[in-house]
């Protein structure tokens, strides 16, 4: 496979984790501008675990996911009373504070004659897991796609269980949800925590793939991109955010003659698209309708 294609595909896969984590928050009716922070925390933790502590990649990624989840849970607990714009802005502030923490995190060690570890604004270089394990770009793509597929399977089984419908109900109409005996706070906290885990895991993969990470990578623009992908793709199914990622990175970035005008086209396209499909391309209604059609045909 072409190296360029493989690295574009890998990037899409990694950003898909971020878009899915934004999706999970949107499902419970909130908007987060802060998912990039959990992505960044996951990246730093996985990098530290594999490069500094020499942990196996599995434990490294798991630690990244747990780190992202704990930060998200902390945010969820602190903002337990907030919703709407108030919640959205507090996620932004929280994310910037976490990034500031990373900017000042210095813990370098010498391993095999190389200085590694987080070094303030310089970031964390020499995450050599990929080289040490002789991974080619295509091998890594395979690894990332496998992880994404596992995540999608988990999300789809969630989608088939009443949990996801309950979460959507909490997001759309908390009063109705309460009248059905659903505890909105519990749903919100669990989904925010889960979103942190997904973002942290994706961040871990991102660190391993990039081999160098720095706080500037995890700015608010990254998070808003993830959010936009989820909204454009639609909140009907976990496929939605992936479609959003594909539309932007896959379709537009790969058409090279357009590259300079990519954002002019994409920005206008998205705003225009939302006029006609305000709930995104794969809207909940569309999914619900497709599901019942499918069932009718096969029962």
């Amino acid at each position: 496979m072409d190296m360029y294609l493989a690295s574009v595909l890998t990037n899409m896969t990694l950003i898909a984790f971020l878009a899915l984590s934004a999706y999970l928050v949107l499902v419970v009716g909130e908007v987060s501008f802060g998912q990039q922070a959990f992505f960044g925390i996951g990246a730093y933790i996985t990098a530290s675990a594999t490069a500094l502590a020499g942990a196996h990649i599995f434990w490294g990624l798991l630690a990244g996911a747990i780190g992202g989840a704990s930060c998200a849970l902390l945010l969820g607990l602190l903002t337990i009373r907030l919703s709407g714009i108030y919640f959205a802005i507090s996620t932004l502030c929280f994310a910037e504070l976490l990034r500031f923490f990373l900017l000042h995190l210095r813990f370098t060690q010498s391993v095999d004659g190389r200085i590694i570890g987080p070094d303030g604004p310089e970031g964390f270089s020499n995450i050599r897991w990929i080289f040490e394990n002789h991974y080619q770009v295509t091998d890594f793509l395979l690894l990332a796609v496998t992880c994404l597929i596992i995540l999608l399977i988990v999300l789809f089984s969630l989608e088939r269980s009443p949990i996801m419908l309950g979460a959507r109900m909490v997001g759309n109409d908390p009063i109705l949800a309460q009248s059905q005996g659903l505890n909105p706070t519990r749903y919100r906290l669990s989904f925010i925590t889960l979103s942190g885990a997904v973002a942290g895991f994706g961040g871990g993969l991102f660190a391993l793939f990039n081999t160098h990470i720095e706080p500037a990578m995890f700015g608010v623009m990254l998070g808003i991109h993830g959010l936009a992908y989820a909204v454009i793709g639609g909140l009907g199914s976990a496929v939605g955010p992936l479609l959003g990622v594909f539309l932007d990175i896959g379709l537009l970035e790969s058409i090279r003659p357009l590259a300079a005008y990519r954002m002019i086209i994409f920005g206008g396209l998205v705003a225009f698209l939302l006029v006609f499909r305000p709930e995104g391309i794969i809207s909940p209604r569309l999914v619900s309708r497709l599901k019942s059609r499918w069932r009718n045909r096969h029962v």
Binding site: L165, R168, M169, N172, D173, I175, L176, A177, Q178, S179, Q180, G181, L182, N183, P184, G236, E279, S283, P284, R285, S288, R289, S292
Partner: peptide, 24 residues
């Protein structure tokens, strides 16, 4: 909270009916 009422077995309907419009 209201959800605990519902779980304890106190159900209600709403004046103009209340459903999600995004699920069948």
């Amino acid at each position: 909270p209201a959800w605990a009422f519902a779980q304890a077995g106190i159900q209600r309907t709403f004046q103009n009916t209340r459903f999600l419009t995004t699920a069948n």
